[in-house]
């Protein structure tokens, strides 16, 4: 029984989500191999070989794998899938894009967003926006899984010494091509990996106010900035900051929600945070039902005061 983890990387380094996925793969029992499929990604493959617990890295290199196109990456995984009992992807935009494609080609059901490994074929996963936890058992010979990164600790990025083996790159499907990307630049911690997150909602009123009020607090705490769907839809914050059922799922040490009412869909993305602080002027706001510390106040006075007090 051997598990294959599909590494998430930017061709130069391994992304954090891969480390959590390795931990989940180790919990399935047996050896763990990592696939690094990319272009000029030798550095990423070398980094993958350092991850504690990994016994082999398979490195496939080709221009067609440069941007993680689902058609080409799925073909690459399928080329080596025969050797593995478990195939695990991080439940990120990239992993969710490819995993079901692999599962369907193997004619197996896919298990999304697992938060716990009970045994080699039984897993726990949240359903209905995290309002219920389902324990599910796969009846298929191969398990294709995406791993909720906040459900598992990160494996140590160093200490391993796996061999790197080169695999032939799968052919280009020719059906899709990468045109371009607009990746937001910021020097803050990554939202899904941050220890502290400060999140703003609709009550901030405008994108200027959002930046004016939330940025100093984030700077002070070395925190990542998040947002509710309402704030994102209104254009106060970019889409990739959205925390919730359909945005990012986070579980930091401290989550500060300012001007967020606490709809079911938002709670689904942050209620596993260790400590939740809510700042809201509406005493009836549902966010107070999950907050460890609630402050009933106008965020425009409370947040600057908080920055000063820190």
């Amino acid at each position: 029984m051997t598990a294959l983890v599909i590494a998430e990387h930017d061709n130069a380094s391994i992304k954090g989500a891969t480390l959590n996925t390795v931990t989940a793969a180790l919990a399935c029992g047996g050896d763990v191999h990592v696939l690094v499929a990319g272009h000029n990604a030798a550095a990423a493959a070398a980094a993958a070989a350092q991850i504690a617990g990994v016994s082999k890295v398979i490195h496939a290199d080709g221009a067609q794998l440069a941007h993680g196109l689902a058609e080409n990456v799925a073909a690459q995984v399928l080329a080596i899938a025969g050797n593995y009992s478990h195939i695990l992807f991080p439940a990120t935009a990239a992993g969710k894009n490819v995993a079901p494609r692999v599962a369907a080609k193997l004619d197996v059901g896919q298990i999304s967003d697992i938060t716990k490994v009970d045994s080699a074929d039984t897993f726990e996963r949240p359903i209905y926006a995290g309002n219920a936890i389902a324990t599910v058992q796969s009846t298929d010979a191969k398990k294709v899984i995406t791993v909720r990164t906040t459900g598992f600790d990160a494996a140590a990025a160093t200490g391993g010494s796996a061999a790197v083996e080169t695999a032939a790159a799968a052919a280009d499907s020719g059906k899709s091509s990468f045109v371009g990307s607009e990746i937001a630049k910021n020097d803050r911690p990554e939202l899904t990996a941050a220890k502290i997150i400060v999140s703003g909602g609709r009550a901030l009123g405008s994108s200027e106010k959002f930046n004016e009020v939330m940025t100093p607090l984030a700077d002070k705490l070395g925190a990542a900035i998040g947002a509710s769907r309402a704030a994102v839809d209104a254009g106060y914050a970019p889409n990739d900051l959205q925390v919730g059922q359909t945005g990012k799922i986070v579980a930091p040490q401290l989550y500060i929600a300012a001007g967020i009412s606490g709809a079911i869909q938002h709670l689904a993305g942050m209620k596993d945070s260790k400590v939740i602080v809510a700042i809201n002027k509406d005493p009836e706001a549902p966010i107070f039902s999950v907050a460890d510390y609630g402050l009933e106040a106008d965020l425009f006075t409370a947040v600057p005061e908080l920055v000063k007090a820190l």
Binding site: A134, T135, Q137, D140
Partner: peptide, 17 residues
């Protein structure tokens, strides 16, 4: 292909202040 063995409540957060 996937059997649901059990569906349970998520752990409750203790009441805050």
């Amino acid at each position: 292909r996937i059997k649901t063995l059990k569906v349970s409540e998520p752990p409750k957060r203790s009441a805050g202040i």
